[in-house]
Design a protein around this nucleic acid. Structure first.
Length: 271
DNA sequence: CAAATTTGACCATC
DNA sequence: GATGGTCAAATTTG
């Protein structure tokens, strides 16, 4: 996998390939995490768990590798460029006198994912807005532990206009978590219909299902046949126990999934 | 009944 | 004035 990542460097339209590789590996990582969780549920003795763990480690390495080798011509992927641009804007604005404290633009970083839920934190929705020229509204979430632990982490989730099959969501994080509570959230959906129990890694129907709801963690659920085990207490006891014992290095429990926050925010100026 | 979500109002910025 | 982010009362959910 790492070899593949290195091979992608260089050549024509390198950046495009680079970006595509990151997206695809990230997707593979997501799916692998889901598979890992399902295996744990079916085989608590962790049959094949080590193999999957190794694969997850390798995909993480590949992602790290790709992230560290940015495109020279254009300065990285779209997301990276967006982050850099937003950082610049943020810095410019922060110098201006008279900026209202509450409104000062925070450093943000956005990712596009088909799985906007399951980033490992507990979120509480505090607003929703229809955005100009956007088909879908933007939802605003802040950390559940804002009061208890003073964690000011926030995120917004908005389904992208373009591809509805599968839908992609732009998740924009602002302010890093300071809370210490990380609940194990496994980003997968189980089809409860007995005939074809299947996994959906965020692959919803072609149109956003009318019964798609958002739950307490900012997760999307379907109220009939699809369920997301989004909170520990909703897991079958056995699985909860297994998850509690799981290697925390496994990105399945990583706050930002396979994306490391530092990677997302870049490494030049810290917070 | 407590906690979470919804939604219209409010406010800052552009 | 338009737009986007947040507040907070009302409502829903577990």
């Amino acid at each position: 996998m790492v070899k593949m990542a290195k091979k992608i460097e260089g050549g024509p339209s390198t950046c495009h390939h680079h970006h595509m590789a990151i997206q695809e590996i990230n997707r593979a990582h997501e799916l692998m995490s889901q598979l890992h969780a399902v295996l744990l549920q079916l085989f608590p003795a962790q049959v094949g768990g080590d193999i999957l763990k190794e694969i997850l480690t390798l995909t993480s390495s590949a992602l790290s590798e790709l992230q560290s080798t940015r495109c020279e011509s254009s300065g990285g992927s779209d997301d990276e460029r967006r982050c850099a641009s937003e950082k610049r804007k943020s810095l410019q604005r922060s110098d201006r006198p008279g900026d209202h404290k509450r409104r000062r633009k925070q450093e943000t970083c956005s990712i596009v994912t088909s799985v906007p839920y399951g980033d490992g934190y507990q979120w509480r929705k505090y607003g929703q807005k229809t955005i100009n020229n956007a088909k879908y509204p933007r939802s605003y979430y802040r950390c559940t532990y804002r009061e208890g632990q003073g964690c000011l982490a926030k995120k917004t989730v908005q389904q992208e206009d373009g591809c509805a099959d599968p839908p992609s969501f732009k998740v924009e994080y602002s302010i890093q978590h300071t809370c210490k509570t990380i609940d194990a959230v496994v980003p997968f959906v189980i089809d409860s219909t007995p005939k074809e129990a299947s996994l959906h890694g965020g692959g919803f129907s072609s149109e956003q299902h009318p019964s798609l709801l958002s739950d307490t963690a900012g997760n999307l659920i379907q109220d009939e046949s699809l369920w997301i085990y989004d909170q520990m207490q909703e897991w079958p006891p056995l699985v909860s126990e297994q998850l509690g014992k799981m290697d925390m290095e496994s990105s399945i429990l990583s706050p930002t999934g396979p994306w490391d926050w530092d990677m997302l925010m870049g490494d030049d100026d810290g917070w």
